[in-house]
Simulated scan of single mutants.
Amino acid sequence: MNAWMIWAALAGIVVILELFSGTFYLLMISIGMVAGALVAAIGGASALQLVIAGAVGCLATVLLHRSKYGWKGNAHAGRDPNVNMDIGQLIEVGQWNADGHGRFSARVSYRGAMWDVELHHGVGEPGRYLIQEVQGSKFIVKPSTV
């Protein structure tokens, strides 16, 4: 079996493992292995094959990590509309209570339950507000422009 065939078989195995992981990182390593297979196919030495495979795999992994598909870190779930369907929804606040120091709170009915509401910034005036964050049973809102 030629060296390029071994590289290609290993790349195929890594792609199969990628299907179980759900990320693209193993796919990037597989791309490095394909680069090693290409170097082997044109007759490069074993050391050169390893160096090229490692360099291409590392570079592809770094580029993936920095792209929009890479690691996102731990986003705050209370602010993420992909986690909490209430983020970005509008609520109607009839009356604000001044808590002092420029802070305002209210109690509103939303989706059949009573919720505490806190104004992120601004003056508490009755009207429509946009939910920015959910903290337990409390909404942090900002004035709506709609």
Results as ranks from 00 to 15, higher is better:
residue 127 G to H: 06
residue 45 A to I: 12
residue 146 V to Q: 08
residue 46 S to H: 06
residue 115 W to L: 05
residue 46 S to C: 02
residue 82 N to V: 06
residue 72 K to H: 13
residue 114 M to H: 10
residue 45 A to W: 10
residue 144 S to Y: 07
residue 21 S to W: 01
residue 50 L to I: 09
residue 12 G to W: 01
residue 64 L to F: 12
residue 93 V to Y: 04
residue 129 Y to Q: 01
residue 10 L to N: 06
residue 56 V to T: 06
residue 70 G to D: 04
residue 99 D to P: 01
residue 5 M to T: 15
residue 23 T to C: 07
residue 123 V to T: 11
residue 29 I to P: 07
residue 47 A to V: 13
residue 81 P to L: 07
residue 36 G to I: 05
residue 73 G to Y: 14
residue 20 F to V: 13
residue 89 Q to A: 14
residue 120 H to Y: 14
residue 130 L to N: 03
residue 131 I to P: 00
residue 82 N to D: 11
residue 7 W to F: 10
residue 32 G to V: 08
residue 60 A to N: 04
residue 68 K to A: 13
residue 20 F to C: 09
residue 50 L to W: 04
residue 128 R to C: 12
residue 6 I to Y: 07
residue 104 F to Y: 13
residue 86 D to F: 14
residue 67 S to I: 04
residue 143 P to H: 13
residue 97 N to P: 00
residue 15 V to M: 13
residue 51 V to D: 01
residue 74 N to I: 15
residue 117 V to K: 05
residue 71 W to S: 15
residue 110 Y to A: 06
residue 6 I to V: 15
residue 119 L to F: 01
residue 117 V to R: 03
residue 51 V to I: 15
residue 13 I to V: 15
residue 77 A to H: 14
residue 1 M to W: 02
residue 96 W to I: 04
residue 59 L to Q: 00
residue 82 N to K: 11
residue 42 I to Q: 05
residue 130 L to Y: 03
residue 77 A to R: 13
residue 108 V to N: 03
residue 140 I to Y: 00
residue 84 N to Q: 07
residue 118 E to V: 10
residue 13 I to D: 02
residue 44 G to W: 12
residue 54 G to I: 13
residue 63 L to G: 05
